[in-house]
Amino acid sequence: MEIKDKIVPLLQEQFPETNFEVTDFRGDLKIKFDASLIVPVGNFLKQHDELKFNMCEDVTAVDWATKKKRFTIIYHIYSLENKFRLRLACDVEENHPHIESVVPVWKSANWYERETYDMYGIKFDNHPDLRRMYMPEEYEYYPLRKEYPLMGIPGDLTLPKK
């Protein structure tokens, strides 16, 4: 059996009450589930003897610009042993967007989550060092949100004093 066909049944077995929404587009497997389960699911995928998704390659978010379920957090994880990449997705709401940090599972998520926080303003709970990645610390906007204009907001960056 291919690794691709194994993942969803194994997950369903471990988390019987969760609804896993599976899409397969152009060969990319994407699994969408409830945001509160990201850490247990991550731990399971990483520690399972067959799956071993030991590398977190990327964490990012998508802003759908909708009233409900405005953001989707996207995780790309890779299994070096199976040479397979999996995409996890979790929806979060616009009002106080937050999700549990996966740094305890994959250390490398540290900077990716900081970048996502910087660009979308999504808080990662229990992140060890949640600071802005690119923008200055006192910057009050989140540039990759859809309401942020392409040209930027004039006067939003204070120039350093001479």
């Binding site: 899409t23 587009f25 152009r26 990319d28 994407k30 390659e57 990327d58 990012t60 998508v62 996207i74 790309h76 990449r85 995409r87």
Partner: peptide, 18 residues
């Protein structure tokens, strides 16, 4: 409509576009 992730081995490491 859909989303894809494609990664290649660049000189510096894995360059991916989502």
């Amino acid at each position: 409509v859909g989303d894809i992730y494609s990664a290649v081995e660049n000189p510096k490491g894995e360059l991916g576009f989502y």
